Amino acid sequence: MPISISDLATVRARHPEAIAEAAARRTRRPLLGASGRLMVVAADHPGRGALGVGDDRLAMANRADLLERLCVALSRPGVDGVLATADILEDLLLLGALENKVVMGSMNRGGLAGARFELDDRFTGHRAEDMARLRFDAGKLLLRIDYEDEGSLATMLSTARAIDDMAARRLPVFVEPFISRRVGTVVRNDLSAEAVTRSIAIASGLAGTSAYTWLKLPVTDDPDDMASVLETSTLPTVLLGGEVGRDQDAAYERWRKALRLPTVHGLIVGRSLLYPAEGGVETAVDTAVGLL
């Protein structure tokens, strides 16, 4: 039976097997429903030490608050699923919030925000065998490439092998590629049309098969470039929401335009929906769903 958030610590301490039991009885659904569209809420940022939203550097640090926001988002019509690390997904399993939802495990969280080794992004999260064992539906990995950082090569190699492992189990894997560079101690992602085009080409060519590979892509600096950028690959794509800043309406319009393109099947959005600059979680999620 589902439990309350206040009971999670007790259940974890006394009945850790409850997680596997909840995973075994969870009702699953296809990745894509009848509409062919996909709306997923992302909450894997804490696993990389990225807890900030806007000016609040620890906004996502309160786990009970984050879980409440996720449960609200998952309850809204049109929300298909959630992307998160093992600890968060297992909390949601125990809360009974993942019934008939797409469950997407976050795979590489070793590139800690601000670390010297950030671009050697090790696979410290879900493995393909974990997702198969827990009956999860897909995985997601982050691939940031800095041509001047050797850590990117290690990430590329481990990414390719992770895609192979997922494909061997017929599990979709969503690859989030960027061309990146360091500005001082901060890694910045290049969202120019040329950089995003190059990242798509590199990500699409990884591993021994691309049969189960999806792309998770940002909207370029100039949204008018997205049509030509997405001609780089035939792989199915979802848009990365990212932080929208203060001008939510402008961000939503960028997403709306890109969602019309033929290879784009949906959105994966996190902090901007769970911690909106204006209004509540319900309003932000409903607005994003309306774009689909």
Score class of each variant (00 low, 15 high):
94 L>H: 00
97 A>W: 01
111 G>Y: 05
90 E>L: 07
250 A>D: 12
174 F>N: 01
238 V>I: 14
292 L>V: 13
85 T>N: 14
73 A>H: 04
120 D>Q: 13
135 R>Y: 03
222 D>I: 15
183 V>A: 13
110 G>L: 09
159 T>K: 11
70 L>W: 09
32 L>N: 07
285 V>R: 04
262 P>S: 03
76 R>D: 06
275 Y>C: 02
220 T>E: 03
252 Y>C: 07
229 V>N: 04
213 T>Q: 15
51 L>M: 05
137 D>R: 06
203 A>H: 12
113 A>Y: 11
150 E>A: 14
187 V>F: 06
250 A>N: 07
11 V>I: 10
188 R>H: 15
112 L>A: 07
4 S>N: 11
49 G>E: 01
219 V>D: 04
248 Q>L: 14
10 T>A: 12
264 V>S: 06
263 T>M: 08
133 R>S: 09
204 S>P: 06
282 E>F: 07
141 L>F: 08
248 Q>S: 11
153 L>S: 13
169 R>H: 07
135 R>W: 06
168 A>C: 02
248 Q>F: 12
228 S>N: 09
145 I>T: 14
81 G>C: 03
208 G>Y: 08
39 M>R: 12
108 N>Q: 03
238 V>G: 05
182 R>T: 10
219 V>P: 11
266 G>L: 12
41 V>H: 01
33 G>Y: 05
270 G>Q: 02
253 E>M: 12
132 A>C: 04
201 A>E: 15
48 R>Q: 08
195 A>E: 11
205 G>N: 12
264 V>D: 04
13 A>M: 06
173 V>H: 04
97 A>V: 06
182 R>W: 10
109 R>A: 09
19 I>D: 03
79 V>Y: 01
253 E>D: 15
158 S>R: 15
174 F>Q: 00
112 L>I: 13
283 T>Y: 05
282 E>H: 11
81 G>P: 13
292 L>W: 10
265 H>Q: 10
201 A>L: 10
118 E>Y: 03
86 A>P: 10
178 F>W: 15
162 A>Y: 05
124 T>W: 08
67 L>P: 09
113 A>N: 13
284 A>Y: 01
175 V>R: 12
241 G>I: 00
37 R>L: 12
149 D>Q: 15
217 L>R: 05
255 W>K: 07
15 H>A: 10
208 G>E: 12
28 R>I: 02
95 L>M: 03
168 A>K: 06
100 N>S: 15
125 G>K: 04
5 I>N: 00
230 L>A: 03
225 D>Q: 08
8 L>Q: 04
285 V>S: 09
25 R>N: 06
188 R>N: 08
281 V>W: 11
231 E>I: 00
247 D>M: 06
25 R>S: 14
33 G>R: 11
254 R>L: 07
141 L>M: 13
121 D>C: 13
128 A>G: 03
227 A>L: 01
43 A>S: 12
67 L>C: 05
170 R>H: 12
67 L>D: 05
